[in-house]
Amino acid sequence: MNDAISILCARLIAHRFIPRVDPLARRALVDEDFRRALEHRLNEVGLTLLENPYAEHIAVGLQQDMEAFVFGEGEAWLSNNMNLPRDAIALLIVLWALIILPKRERQVTRAEKEREGQADMFGAEKPLAQGEDVSVGVPEDALFADFRDKLGGKTRMNANLGQLARLGFIERRNKMLLEGPLLDLMLDYSTLAPRIIEGALSDVLKRRAADAGSTTE
């Protein structure tokens, strides 16, 4: 067991994230003793396992009480620890709202329907309600049209999109912005979702949902 835990810890630290379907990752999700031993090993060095049943990857992050010791030399870490400028952070939040919020709503709906049927005793090893019909990308042109005046213009947004892609938050394919491995792990859904749904982005999300509905009719 110790060798497997050492290997998994080393891979998580070196690669930042690994797929949920990886054999060691799956073991951490279904084997309670292995999971406790893994979390204990990570906690010993100030790290914590990042995982949720809606994400296709697992990752590691700093324990909250370690953040000041690691990033506390300046105040930049209070907003992020990846040296992202403010407009890139704003763009990241917009993309999270446009990609993760609709995905989560579909996943929760599907998961609830599936629970009404036969229970899956091995369900913990895979993300809930994943599938091509769940994750929806954002067209780059639509994003530029909606937010370029607020987020520094198309050139600046394009540069920030490149940085977010390199960090693993998004993937860019054929002018579409898709969920990256870290988008649903590194941002706290329970904190962000109420602020976005009830806050400044709510009108934008409603308009986009209405536009999508009118397009499909």
Score class of each variant (00 low, 15 high):
Ala145His: 06
Gly152His: 06
Glu140Arg: 15
Leu98Lys: 10
Leu143Val: 05
Val136Tyr: 04
Ile100Phe: 00
Gln107Asn: 04
Asn160Ile: 04
Val136Arg: 14
Leu143Tyr: 02
Lys175His: 14
Leu192Glu: 05
Leu161Tyr: 03
Gly180Gln: 05
Lys154Glu: 15
Leu177His: 05
Lys126Ile: 13
Thr155Val: 15
Pro181Gly: 05
Val136Asn: 09
Met121Tyr: 05
Ile170Glu: 03
Arg115Tyr: 01
Arg156Met: 12
Asp184Asn: 15
Ile99Asp: 01
Met186Phe: 08
Phe122Gln: 12
Arg115Gln: 12
Glu112Leu: 15
Pro102Asn: 08
Glu132Trp: 13
Gly123Leu: 04
Arg148Cys: 04
Ile170Pro: 00
Gly162Asp: 07
Gly123His: 05
Leu128Arg: 11
Arg172Met: 13
Met121Leu: 14
Asp133Cys: 02
Leu177Lys: 06
Gly123Pro: 03
Pro194Trp: 01
Gln163Trp: 09
Leu128Gln: 11
Arg156His: 10
Phe147Tyr: 11
Leu182Pro: 00
Leu101Tyr: 12
Gln130Phe: 08
Leu101Glu: 10
Asn160Gln: 14
Asp188Arg: 04
Ala124Trp: 12
Leu185Lys: 06
Phe147Gln: 02
Pro127Gln: 08
Ala142Trp: 06
Gly153Asn: 07
Leu161Glu: 02
Leu151His: 06
Ser190Gly: 09
Asp149Lys: 11
Ala165Ser: 14
Leu128Asn: 07
Ala145Glu: 12
Ala97Met: 03
Leu192Ala: 07
Arg148Thr: 08
Gly137Glu: 07
Gly153His: 07
Gly131Trp: 01
Leu178Ile: 09
Ala119Ile: 11
Phe169Gly: 02
Ala145Asp: 12
Trp96Cys: 00
Gly152Arg: 02
Thr191Trp: 03
Thr191Asp: 11
Ala124Thr: 10
Leu187Asn: 00
Met186Gly: 05
Glu171Phe: 00
Ala129Gln: 04
Leu151Phe: 08
Arg173Phe: 10
Phe147Lys: 00
Tyr189Met: 01
Met176Ala: 08
Arg110Ala: 14
Gly117Tyr: 06
Leu98Arg: 15
Arg156Asn: 12
Met121Arg: 09
Leu192Gly: 03
Ala145Tyr: 01
Lys126Gly: 07
Lys154Gln: 14
Leu187Gly: 01
Ala97Tyr: 01
Asp133Ala: 13
Gly131Glu: 05
Ala111Val: 08
Glu171Gly: 02
Arg173Tyr: 12
Glu171Lys: 15
Thr155Asp: 14
Arg172Tyr: 02
Thr191Pro: 00
Leu167Met: 08
Glu125Ala: 15
Met186Val: 12
Pro194Ala: 02
Leu143Ile: 03
Glu116Asp: 10
Asp133Phe: 06
Arg106Ser: 09
Gly117Asp: 10
Ile99Trp: 01
Lys150Cys: 06
Gly123Ala: 12
Arg173Leu: 11
Gly168Gln: 06
Asp120Leu: 10
Asp188Phe: 00
